[in-house]
Design a protein around this nucleic acid. Structure first.
Lengths: 409, 409
DNA sequence: AATAATTTGTTAATATTTTTATAAAACAAG
DNA sequence: CTTGTTTTATAAAAATATTAACAAATTATT
């Protein structure tokens, strides 16, 4: 198994000079990561260092294949500066995007470009068989990609659930682990690479923040509506994890004391009203109670109704579907307004399956926020729909992996 | 008026050397602030610098009267090191602690020792007269303290309300400002000193975090129950303000859709159930409805019942008072459990008037958190009662002022 | 009580980094 | 097309910081 060396040991053994160099190296890599390409002068300025020093460090990073040149910039007055950026050929990150429907293996270069992708109908299940299948599938995919094993630098995994970020253990899916060994350790041993696990919603908000709609914002909330409801949080420009990595659990806040029993054991959780799962159940119940709707066509095979069908109906003007989406959006907005009062964000991003419903879901959310939030909180707040799509999550995994990896370089 | 120089200008004009020196100076001051006293070797280690460099910087700071020696340490094996710490004689911070009941002027030295204090029965009111009275009172207090004006380095103000932290404007008490000039600017002009304003609950949590119960913890929530309910938040070891400084507004989350009208215009806010104000109202209503209680003695002058009376009754075993406190604690705990789900903190500190009720308020809070929180969130969470008392807030003001001030040094 | 071991504080030597100077490259303007 | 301006890249000089060395101060040990 890959073991990253303990931080303190290094710190105390390293000389002051080595420490400062390491900080500069990380600074250069982080800067290049965010800006795609940059010049020596720009790097020197933003890292508060002199050009010769930066030249040295960049040279070293080029030798280690982390950095390459990308031609020269044009348009300035004077001599054209050489552009440096993270290598696109030498080092690759593997992302395992796991959801309850399927699993994707995505290989990206350091510039986050997807160079290989393989999907499988392997949905997340809470048993050791899943881990085994995942391992098998990943191995096959990496082989198929024909990338030399030595070129992989790390593996990142995103999945739903409460993930203890220090150990990478998923507390919601505990039975995946075999003999107390967390999934991350299993995969790390198999491929002899560092493995980092992040909650899927947190990965998404990371992507949206660094390379999407929320770019440059300091405080961002991203709500993800899927089989459950998740909240990804960026505070002070960084992903917020909380003490154990569980921060942002909006789905199990009680919205209705007389509501349904939730699978978590509590009553009336937001999840019981607004998750895709509950939405379908509510539609089915409504139809059985005789509501008039285009969806009545499904009366004979009511279990075939899925979220896409409902949204389609709403987009075609079906009053029943619109009503249901409105109700869901309202409750979601009420829950979000609590988060807005507590986090005071600049932007809220809506993501997940329901984004296809567009206005039919953002309108009630916006209205509920107006109703339940104090005006001072609403004034500088915008509500937007995600535009990066599935790429947001992959980019987020990549960012998370690189953040963790750079801390050890 | 005191104008702090714009950061960017300085940054761009300063040479790399000057910038690095400034960072080191700030580092030394911050380190000494937190550790009371320290040695050159310790400073060098924690700032990743060499001893000769640190010796230089400390010497400079001693010349500028920021730092003094504090004798030598004892107990080590070798030669006794000289101890350095922030001066206790040369520079002073003024704290204005404003509440709805009264106002206190507190003068502290750099080590946060109170060297002068003056109280006045001036409660916060939303009109320009308050600003005038505050100014007058402060001027008088500073005179009385006999501290030479040149020894003051900054003024910190704590008060309830939504405070826009960039400008120092209190959005909840807007009419305090005269001619669009925020209170902070008014005071800054008068005394020609930088002025920093912070919400009272945020000040308290800062104090508890750096020098109280939550010392060393990374993620802390502090709930303050007073005329309203406020939540102070420490995330990643730093005070969390949100985009505008409004973060932590727990009091206006809707807890009861059929509840009372709140002064904010919304219905059933947490504030309408759990603030000291509401607690008294509920007791009065209960008594009028004929509840049996020790407090019935107040039937003739029911408006004299205050929060202390109710708590005393509970401590003496009065069932009615205990019931009311239990109800309040339960709702509070339910509200807190939302915050716990979103922030995933390590510790929750209860503060404010109700702390005297001790178990009678912490028990229902704890029970409600157990009921409404997922177990993973409760496992590593402790709930404690504040022990620093009023000093927490003053210390918090001091910390905030020094943090802001150091950024400009 | 004397010696060994530890730690600090200062000085000197070494190493590193920044600054300055200069040449090269690109573009604009006369 | 040449000259002047602007910016980059590198080399040399200057400044600064780190390391190493050593003396001083203290505690533990023989």
């Amino acid at each position: 198994m890959y073991v990253s060396p303990p931080d303190e040991e290094i710190d105390s053994k390293k000389s002051v000079v080595d420490y400062k160099k390491s900080v500069s190296r990380r600074g250069v890599l982080a800067e290049l990561y965010q800006s795609e390409v940059s010049t020596l002068a720009q790097l020197a300025k933003s890292l508060h260092s002199s050009v010769p020093s930066i030249t040295n460090i960049v040279e070293e990073l080029v030798n280690e294949k982390w950095v390459s040149t990308f031609g020269t910039a044009v348009g300035n007055h004077g001599r054209r500066p050489v552009l440096f950026g993270l290598s696109t050929q030498e080092k690759y990150v593997v992302a395992l995007d796991i959801s309850t429907h399927d699993t994707k293996v995505v290989i990206m270069n350091l510039q986050r470009e997807v160079i290989f992708r393989k999907d499988i109908k392997l949905g997340l299940e809470d048993n050791p068989r899943f881990a085994k299948a995942l391992l098998e599938f990943t191995r096959k995919a990496l082989e198929e990609s024909q990338v030399e094993a030595s070129h992989f630098v790390a593996i990142g995994i995103s999945m739903p659930g409460l993930i203890q970020f220090q150990s990478g253990t998923n507390m919601t899916y505990r039975r995946i682990n075999q003999e107390e060994k967390p999934l991350s350790a299993l995969i790390s041993e198999e491929f002899n690479l560092p493995v980092f696990v992040i909650n899927d919603t947190k990965a998404t908000v990371l992507g949206e923040h660094r390379f999407g709609l929320a770019r440059g914002k300091k405080h961002v909330l991203a709500i993800n509506i899927d089989w459950g409801v998740g909240l990804g949080i960026i505070l002070n420009g960084e992903i917020f994890q909380g003490a154990s990595g569980f921060a942002g659990e909006l789905g199990h806040i009680q919205m209705d004391p007389d509501g349904e029993l939730c699978h978590c054991g509590k009553v009336g959780c937001l999840d019981t009203i607004t998750s895709a799962r509950s939405l379908i159940r509510r539609v089915q119940r409504g139809l059985n109670e005789g509501r008039v709707s285009k969806l009545s066509a499904y009366m004979d095979h009511i279990e075939d109704i899925d979220i896409e069908t409902i949204i389609e109906a709403a987009l075609e003007g079906d009053a029943f579907a619109i009503d249901i989406l409105f109700d869901v959006g309202t409750v979601l907005g009420k829950g979000l307004s609590m988060a807005v009062h507590l986090f005071n964000p600049e932007i809220v991003i809506v993501d997940g399956i329901v984004v296809k419903a567009d206005q039919f879901i953002t309108n009630p959310i916006g209205q509920a926020i107006n109703k339940y939030c104090l005006s001072d909180f609403r004034n500088d707040l915008s509500i937007e729909i995600s535009q990066l799509g599935e790429r947001a999550k992959w980019i987020g995994i990549h960012i998370y992996v690189m953040d963790q990896l750079l801390a050890t370089i």
